[in-house]
Amino acid sequence: MNWISNYVRPRINSLFSRREVPENLWTKCPECGTMLFHREFADNLHVCTNCDHHMGIIPRDRFAALFDGGIFAEVDVPMPTHDPLHFKDQKKYPDRMKAAQKGTGEREAMLVAEGEIGRTPIIAAAQDFSFMAGSMGMYVGNAIIAAAERAVATKRPLVLFSAAGGARMQEGILSLMQMPRTTVAVQMLKEAGLPYVVVLTHPTTGGVTASYAMLGDVHIAEPNALICFAGPRVIEQTIREKLPEGFQRAEYLLDHGMLDRVTHRRDMKSELVTILRMLTGQTPAVAGDLPKPEDVPAAPDAVAEAATGAAEQVDEA
């Protein structure tokens, strides 16, 4: 896979299509109001340095921090039928799509990649909440199927980062059909004996929660992430009472037995490495200094590329 076309070019595109730099220099934490300088904010993986509030992070930034040395190769996802219903609300669906593509520099709401984390080869898929609320349509379904197929072909575990407002209404029933479709993808992994770890991030709701996001071997959530089937507003309207503080948040779900862990974004990578290496029967990850890149024995293509960056990444951690 070509690193320039898969990684560098989309990255440059997304830089150009984003808002002007001056506006982006500071981010205000919606939770505590602290003004965060962009560099510091990015270094802290979009987590507030003052109150630890976890803000949204786009898949490319997440992968850059997740994979050893920030190196990963994108896995191709087949493009689905374009606007299958000829959907039009106040805007046409293709227009909404174009606006989302321009705003994010991405093709669609999910990115699939392969690479190594702590020298453990994995496939990762991340949903992009900034792209039409990460909504699950045909493409997201195709992405999860492609991720599962790649994982089975390369015998790697799949780590999936979920973030979505739910199903993509503009694809009508076909978006609903992604629930059974993605479930078939999860079954492929299970039958191949490969670990499937779901990291639920803010927010994971609706049909996404009610399919692939709740079928993991291990469920980890980011702190305070909203995770639900029906949203709090819908429930309040139905039962006509105010919901308790923290209802449907990650910690609440942990208490109710729906999650295994709630983990800070900073610690996510090492935790994933630990869990995945145990599930796949590998030796413990090497913490601390690794041999210099030239001492690493030669490995085939993508694996070699990833290994070169591994050393410095582990040093930092």
């Binding site: 479930t183 078939v184 009610a210 709740m214 079928l215 919901l243």
Partner: peptide
């Protein structure tokens, strides 16, 4: 639709639906 209630969410509405879909595929 599935019932949007407090208890339903607490007892894992999403997980129950996901598992039911998975079961019917099997």
């Amino acid at each position: 639709g599935a019932y949007p209630g407090k208890g339903a969410e607490e007892r894992g509405q999403s997980e129950a639906i996901a598992r039911a879909t998975e079961r019917s595929l099997n």
